[in-house]
Design a protein around this nucleic acid. Structure first.
Length: 598
RNA sequence: GGCCCCGUGGUGUAGUGGUCUAACAUGCCACCCUGUCAAGGUGGAGAUCGGCGGUUCGAAUCCGCUCGGGGUCGCCA
């Protein structure tokens, strides 16, 4: 080893020791004779002091520049009391080198490593290895390591077996688009990268492992978002002989402990509240509500039944609903503020946003008041429990549109009114989802979550008579408006699984071609089983309080799915294509040619 | 695929029709400087304003197209 001590570890108690350090020049302060160099390594920063009385050592410090790599041997000494730096953990000491060697020089970095600066993300990603040198960036990656390590130890201690599953599997056309990998030995055949190890983990239960987990890389070839990338990591686990409460209880214990150890916030409610899907949609208009604040949706259809106000009357007559959010103390929203909220509501499909404000003193201010009777207005006030000084925001539409629009309004109000307290972790479970949803354009049912989710036993007859009313044994873990994970108790009988597939429009032949392995396995004593897949990236995001998923990934891709550092993806050699039995379309050819010319 | 925002020395920004021969901060280079820790001081180099085309007597600035980045809707069982 070129070093025997980490820079960041030195403390007053090390005074007098002779240490060998190695690291990067973080900063250099040249006073002419006296030169200070802050030397940084993976543990932190310590100050080196160079004086002219060792000319050959001083000369090295004189040449050295930011990000050069130095090896140093020297004595740790206490700083004079007036030169202690309380902002550094090592600030009570400094190292006086008796030897200093340049291990490598460095170009001037393209951006600051020694201070937090808001640098263009593309530049950061192109030089990600430099970006990761910045302590605040590296901190997140290290935290991720600690969390993952804790998860592993937590599950090992509870008898889980960690098992890897293949990343080259079979493509299935459901759900997200697959990433495909051509198979050279049989041109025309493709592997797919897994969207999750779902089927494989069920097969591990059939195999008798009883408790499995894996930190699984999952791939989806869809468009990206601030919290969504092509490849993400999932805590994937599955247990045999369990019901919902076993899985939820285990995950709740795990996440509570993670939040306690690694989070910088407090858990709002423990045990995590469990919301029924329909109730949740009714109150929040979304199946992943942010429970850090109220502003719940209230159905005010009833007091308006029989109204002569045509906007509401026609919606009610068509079977729609009128829903409202009461915003306490915001009767003074300006016209401009209300206009922008209206635009947000329209983004959810609403035709507009009606408002009624009760001013201090009792006066009602509302563009629609003249179309409503005093009794109707009073009915709205009672339903929403509005008081003087409050405003009520109203959407009338089909149930889904009204719910979605008011969800968007509520979300915006949460931001605008500063209700999203970053120090609060509002976990919740959402359960009671419908098993299936109707796809009118395709004339078939589709699984709301995944086609392997089980359903309440008492609902089995409904599969024949009224499939839309079958309630699944799915559970979603949500926190602060984000979905952190989801799982279910699975179907473990072939006949039930086939029934669900047939409702989804599959023939026996298609079932066999796509899911033959699973169906067959279910006939060989598949145990009752259930599990969960929980997004690790989003968990870390929540713990560090970022809304950018790239912050928690060491080498992330840009939002268009490319890697500017490696230059991936890239065209490949024509010979490689030939081997794989692939040909480019003319458009693809042109694409490659044009890129080559740039 | 649609929509919104952004693109000016290495980095971050200012400049929204002529006063821009492009400003500021920081970084970089040189010199001075022995207690700093975002060290300080003096001087210097560095951008034809993402690209192409158009409008105009005149474009960083206006228009069109395009490339790149960020966000979002669709999509994401």
């Amino acid at each position: 080893m070129l070093k025997d001590t980490y820079c960041g570890d030195l403390r007053a108690s090390d005074a007098g020791r002779t240490v060998r350090l190695a690291g990067w020049v973080h900063r250099r302060r040249d006073h002419g004779g006296l030169i200070f160099i802050d030397l940084r390594d993976s543990h932190g920063i310590v100050q080196l002091v160079f004086t002219p009385d060792r000319p050959e050592v001083h000369a090295v410090a004189d040449r050295a520049r930011v990000e050069w790599v130095l090896a140093v041997e020297g004595e740790v000494r206490l700083r004079a009391p007036n030169t202690v730096n309380p902002r550094l953990p090592t600030g009570e000491v400094e190292v006086v080198p008796i030897r200093c060697e340049v291990l490598n020089e460095s170009l001037t970095p393209p951006f600051y490593i020694n201070e937090p600066a808001d640098v263009d993300e593309r530049v950061r990603l192109t030089y990600r290895y430099l970006d990761l040198r910045r302590p605040e960036v590296a901190r997140v990656i290290r935290l991720r390591h600690e969390v993952v390590r804790f998860i592993r130890e937590f599950l090992y201690a509870r008898g889980f077996t960690e098992i890897e599953t293949p990343t080259l599997i079979k493509s299935t056309p459901e759900g997200a688009r697959d990433f495909l990998v051509p198979f050279r030995h049989r041109p025309g055949y493709f592997f797919a990268l897994p969207q999750s190890p779902q089927i494989l983990k069920e097969l591990l239960m059939v195999a008798g492992f009883e408790r499995y987990f894996q930190l699984a890389r999952c791939y989806r070839d869809e468009d990206f978002r601030a919290n969504r990338v092509a490849e993400h990591t999932q805590l994937d686990l599955e247990m045999s002989f369990v019901d919902e409460s076993d899985v939820m209880g285990l995950i709740e214990e795990l996440y509570t402990e993670i939040a306690r150890r690694f989070g910088n916030g407090r858990i709002l409610q423990s045990p995590f509240p469990r919301l029924d899907y329909f109730d949740c949609m009714e109150r929040y208009g979304i199946d992943r509500p942010d429970l850090r604040y109220g502003l719940e949706q209230v159905d005010i259809t009833e007091p308006l039944r029989g109204t002569t106000f045509n906007v509401f009357a026609s919606v009610i007559a068509a079977g729609g609903v009128v829903k409202a959010i009461r915003v306490p103390g915001k009767a003074d929203f300006t016209r401009r503020e209300l206009d922008s909220l209206t635009e947000i509501a329209k983004g959810g499909g609403a035709k507009g946003l009606a408002t009624i404000a009760w001013l201090p003193g009792g006066e009602v201010r509302s563009p629609i008041a003249k179309f409503l009777t005093p009794a109707e207005i009073d009915g709205i006030r009672m339903r929403t429990e509005a008081c003087e000084g409050d405003i009520v925001l109203i959407v009338a539409d089909e149930r889904e549109v009204a719910a979605r629009s008011l969800h968007l309004v509520r979300d915006e109000l949460g931001d605008r009114l500063g209700l999203k307290d970053p120090s609060v972790l509002a976990f919740a479970w959402v359960t009671g989802f419908p098993l299936l949803e109707w796809r009118p354009e395709e004339g078939r049912w589709d699984a709301m979550h995944n086609p392997f989710s089980g359903f309440r036993p008492e609902d089995e007859p409904l599969l024949d008579t009224d499939p839309g009313r079958v309630v699944s044994r799915q559970y979603d873990l949500v926190m602060n408006g984000q979905e952190l994970g989801g799982g279910s108790i699975r179907i473990n009988k072939r006949a039930q699984q086939e029934k669900v597939f047939s409702l989804m429009g599959y023939s026996k032949e298609e079932m066999e071609a796509r899911f033959g392995a699973l169906l067959r396995a279910l006939e060989y004593g598949a145990p009752p089983m259930g599990g969960i897949g929980a997004g690790i990236d989003r968990l870390i995001m929540a713990l560090v309080g970022t809304d950018n998923i790239r912050d928690v990934i060491a080498f992330p891709k840009t939002s268009n799915g490319t890697d500017p550092m490696l230059g991936a993806p890239s065209p490949v050699d024509p010979e490689q294509l030939r081997e794989l039995g692939l040909m480019l379309t003319p458009e693809a050819e042109r694409n490659v040619r044009e890129a080559a010319e740039l």
